[in-house]
Amino acid sequence: MSDVKNILLVGVGGQGIILASKILSTGLMNAGYDVKMSEVHGMAQRGGSVTTQVRFGEKVYSPIIGKGQADILVSFEKMETGKWIEYLNVKGKVVVNDYEILSAPILIGKEEYPRGIMEELKEKTDVTVFKAADIAKELGNIRTMNVVMVGALVKAIGLDNIDWEEVLRNTVKEKYIDINIKALRKGMEQVK
């Protein structure tokens, strides 16, 4: 189905990816699209990789995205970008949080965190990299990093006409609404 758009969010358990995709799909549903979302969890809370896939359009069948099909890959952790890049459409975009989470083999000194992934990917496709964690920390709460990423994502894929601030008002707890709206705006500023 050619009119269906595909968004792939990847990262590590505990980074708020599930909530980010909830915000995203709520906004898309409000905008009148058919939406499907698939997530893989279970062992994720125990430090494993997490992915959620959001598909939207007039009519969506499969809830999962195929290889070479994602219009945008949103990566919350640098190394995870490499693991999922084959799912990106060759004309797609990548938005990356410049943030490293060391996995078990790296922590025990058996392997080293890979270098040069971003440089290699930038040669091959349209990549935007920025430090969402630092932006979230400056705003006063590192946990808003996921909403910074949502901001960058909706700008990059041209969905900034949807009222995302309204979606935030209805999805996050009242005392966190203001900071999340700021995070959303900051995220949108990261993408030209």
């Binding site: 995870e80 693991k83 060759v90 091959k124």
Partner: peptide, 13 residues
């Protein structure tokens, strides 16, 4: 698809 050498990546068990 975009070619990328995954062998340099570290697993995340």
């Amino acid at each position: 698809t975009i070619s990328f050498d995954e062998s340099k990546l570290v697993s995340r068990p």
